[in-house]
Design a binder for these strands. Structure first.
Lengths: 342, 342
DNA sequence: CTGAAAGCGCTTACAG
DNA sequence: CTGAAAGCGCTTACAG
């Protein structure tokens, strides 16, 4: 790479100190510098195509105007949508985003945190993974500003932006019960992550409060590292029970996508033979012949709020905000039923 | 943020110079340093939880171990898949990825390039946008190592990794002609970008060489900033002509997704009434009742090769490699026909 | 063998 | 009003 023009080069050319050049180019000490000198400096800087070396500036100011973003999997549309929003929001404030995917692994998350901290990011936005609470505590102990997004630990008193997962699941199940369904299954990940626990809790509560006896076999948990096969297996489980379920709630878009593929293979008719609901949307769910009834997360607002809170924390480390946004139940054709059918 | 431990802190604690600490921690001058001193330094470093300040190191070495990735739109599954692969590949080589989306805008691309260059990235991987050739030339003049990915300018003698777009389109059209189709349309973006031009050229060549007179109305160009409406309009155009087309090739996954939604709305049967082919895949195309026949790009290999070539260029600026990979035509149900149907 | 000294390219408190 | 000097936290050629 060609050697870049430095303040020194300009100073030499104009015949002043680098200090003066720095003042002029940063519009410091306005009016206290002779106009001719200032103009000359600006002209030479332009002619030489000068741009600040951010590394040097960062070393001096210990500010990098960089934020680190760690998502669970950048190739999931939910994550990439979030990434784009955060990037846009950061850019408005002159911040650059460095990113990484944890692939749901604590080790990877830990490594990424180290890399980002060593690169002196000004702050971090993180979607936590299972068993990563200690990593988050470590970060807090280092007093690095950060905001958890989407996933968080309720027992940790740190900033987060997420949805109300309990309420979202509860509302969805209540909706479908009102439609006349009684035997309702759920497919979720086998995970201790709070947001998933909350989704399951909302599902169970809604059933119980509607007086529907909850059948343990209705709750199917799939492995993160074997999602596809486990989803297929759990669907077969749910529909082949003595009392097969009439509807299923999926805890994520990836789960429902695998499910729809399998349902197509099995030639099950949606919603006539089986109603489907899901958390999150994706282009995919609109292409299925019966577009999915799904819980829409306010991704835009999540990304914007998380960025905003992070920037506040960078300014004032004592900032602490915990936000749980409401979701929206988008009604598709995957749950439409005649009121009298059940 | 808490002040981090520096070399100086360790040096003070042990009672040696920072130079010696640096040597030991970087395993330089092996054996030329007394073992007791080295051990003591390592112990103190561990106890104090020392990690290198990469900013300071970068300023000295003018190496940041960071690469910049600029995709057209991170929320497109093609881009995010690429991002993830590049990130994985970079990490294997101890590089971090900084990323940004150009949103198909030259201005945004230009701004991102400035930001990345000022942050002293060691190199860049870029998906070019329309009319951005001058930006790329500027980058070359600055002698920043970079590799173009997916999109490139054939008249520019710089490294790139892409597919053979002409051949891909040509093969797809030839395939469908062999199936008995004659009136074949194409929906692409109104763009001067080379990869899109090549796709159109492949389409036209295949028709001509098969002796099918090419009808100009069969080629529909949609606006980037009005994709959805234009796609819908162009489909209606193609099927309502005096001689309606029997098949359509879409130049990207986004185009075909919009198309499938509209085709569902219009209740057109695929492939009986209209056959569909597309560049790129997405989960979406598998959920449509007739999974799409599509041209699969070797994303994994593209990302890996681009990263590899970039790292070579960083090592040796004279590196110049231009790679055009082959694609694969994945046969789905969206083009299945009885041999005798046409 | 060991380590003091210079320097990467900036910023800014401070002296004149 | 102006700018020399110190220093951010490293690395490494070089002197002893």
């Amino acid at each position: 790479m060609k050697k870049k023009v430095s303040l020194k080069d300009i100073a030499l050319e104009v015949g002043v100190s680098t200090a003066l050049v720095s003042y002029v180019l940063n519009n410091q000490k306005e009016g206290r510098i002779r106009k001719e000198v200032a103009d000359r400096i600006r002209t030479v800087a332009r002619d030489l195509n000068y741009t600040t070396n951010q590394i040097a500036r960062s070393l001096k100011t210990s500010k990098t105007f960089t934020i680190g973003l760690i998502v669970a999997d950048i190739s999931n549309p939910f994550s990439s949508a979030l990434a784009r929003i955060i990037e846009d929001e950061a850019e408005k404030n002159n911040y650059t985003v460095i990113f990484g995917s944890s692939h749901e692994s604590t080790e990877k998350l830990s490594r990424l945190l180290n890399v980002f901290v060593n690169r002196q990011v000004d702050g971090l936005i993180i979607a936590a993974v299972e068993n990563s609470m200690n990593e988050i505590i470590r970060l807090r102990d280092m007093e690095v500003p950060f905001v958890l997004i989407d996933r968080y630990f309720p027992e940790l008193n740190v900033s987060h932006v997420a949805i109300d997962n309990y309420k979202a699941a509860y509302s969805a199940i209540t909706y479908i019960i009102d439609k006349g369904y009684k035997r309702i299954g759920m497919v979720t990940y086998k995970s201790s992550l709070f947001h998933l626990q909350e989704r399951a809790r909302g599902y169970i509560s809604a059933l119980k409060e509607s007086g529907i006896p909850y059948n343990m076999n209705w709750m199917q948990e799939v492995r993160v590292n074997n999602t596809r096969e486990d989803v297929e297996h759990s669907i077969r489980q749910l529909i082949s029970q003595p009392e097969p379920v009439e509807a299923i709630l999926f805890a994520s878009n990836l789960l429902s996508i695998h499910a729809l593929k399998h349902i197509n293979t099995l030639s099950i008719k949606v919603p006539e033979e089986l109603a489907i609901m899901s958390f999150d949307e994706s282009d995919a769910s609109y292409l299925f012949y019966a577009p999915l009834t799904h819980i829409r997360q306010p991704i835009q607002e999540m990304g914007q709020q998380a960025t905003k809170i992070l920037l506040e924390s960078i300014d004032d480390y004592s900032t602490l905000k915990q936000v749980n946004l409401d979701t929206e139940l988008v009604i598709g054709k995957s749950t439409l039923v005649e009121q009298s059918a059940h």
